[in-house]
């Protein structure tokens, strides 16, 4: 049985496995080796560990050059340093020419950045990359899913952004649970009173909320939307059709992430009221990981209340 200390270790284990079977896989590090828990990769594959120093823009553009030469680089560091500091390099020199670069952004969400504060809490990353054409966007829910997801994104040709955490992620999935890129996964089907869509490391809270609602006699359907782009429109629309109201739960600003992705599907295929549980467009602060989620609107109670609110708006 595999076990990791968190999603970063899961990433490194997956990359080690990939690299062992294919010499095109490289790791580009802007002095992020320790942060990524990837020193074992550097030790095992020293010539495939490209250390560019604290220079994220360079890291991404170097990766573009490597990919243009037939290699498959992973650029791994803090989510915001990829998606904000090196955003233009990601957009213009990787996504635009459709180069096969994989991005792993850690400290995703306010949970991921927790005590570090806003400089290291990244809650805009998914919105930023979603708005760039031609890039796949993935936010797995736990370490087992990250491991599977890294392998899944390595198997496709083209740029991908995958969000990872900082070691405090709860294990939700069984180790052998499959990860199917581009497809939602329905985890609970109590009924069709309300739909809960969750993404990333708050899936445990969404599960708890679904169970709480069930105890109150409200039958929810809960789905993990780990792939935000391309979004699984068909499956989401079918759930919206059945439930008639939905709540999106994400450790991200309520602008740009899962809630917007679900709303896009809803407005096109099945307009229903949608509640947004996430960071309410404010800058958060430092705090213990679970506490910051509770404080900034992502408690189990917040999810339950949002479900009750949208149900009242059902037509």
């Amino acid at each position: 049985m595999s076990s990791y200390k968190g999603t970063r270790e899961a990433f490194t284990q997956a990359l080690l496995a990939l690299a062992a079977s294919d010499d095109r896989f490289l790791l580009v590090s802007p002095d992020s080796l320790k942060a990524m828990r990837a020193t074992s990769f550097a030790e095992r594959f020293p010539d495939r560990y490209i250390e560019v120093g604290i220079a994220e823009q360079n890291a991404v553009a170097v990766a573009a050059g490597l990919a243009a030469s037939g290699l498959i680089p992973f650029v791994a560091t803090y989510a915001g340093f990829i998606t904000m500091r090196a955003c233009e390099q990601l957009r213009t020199f990787v996504a635009y020419p459709q180069l096969n670069v994989k991005f792993i952004g850690i400290n995703g969400g306010i949970f991921g950045g927790e005590r570090e504060g806003v400089t290291h809490q990244f809650f805009e990353d998914l919105g930023i990359v979603r708005s760039i054409p031609g890039i796949t966007v993935v936010a797995p829910a736990d370490e087992h899913q990250v491991y599977q997801a890294v392998k899944a994104i390595a198997a496709i040709d083209g740029p991908v952004y995958l969000r990872a955490g900082n070691g405090r992620e709860h294990v939700v999935y069984d180790e052998n649970a499959p990860f199917e890129l581009g497809k939602i996964r329905v985890l609970r089907e109590y009924g069709s009173d309300v739909a809960l869509f969750a993404s990333g490391f708050v899936l445990n809270r969404a599960l708890e909320a679904a169970e709480t609602l069930n105890r109150q006699g409200i039958k929810a359907t809960l789905a993990d939307v780990h792939t935000l782009k391309p979004i699984d429109s068909e499956a989401i629309a079918a759930i919206l059709q059945r439930c008639g109201a939905a709540v999106a739960v994400e450790d991200h600003n309520v602008i740009g992430g899962l809630a917007d992705a679900v709303a896009m599907v809803s407005t096109e295929y099945c307009p229903v009221p949608i509640g947004r549980v996430g960071l309410q467009d404010v800058f958060p602060g430092s705090g213990a990981a679970e506490d910051v989620l509770d404080h900034y609107g992502l408690s189990v109670g917040d999810i339950v209340n949002a479900a009750l609110r949208v149900m009242k708006k059902k037509k």
């Binding site: 490289l26 553009a61 573009a64 050059g65 243009a68 290699l71």
Partner: peptide
């Protein structure tokens, strides 16, 4: 055209990536 370019500053980094790839390969 070996590399997309036009927003200034980025070509040398892309070149570094290509040159590292040449060494590696």
């Amino acid at each position: 055209v070996d590399a997309t370019s036009g927003s200034l500053g980025n070509g040398l980094s892309i070149g570094v990536g290509m040159a590292i790839a040449a060494k590696y390969r």
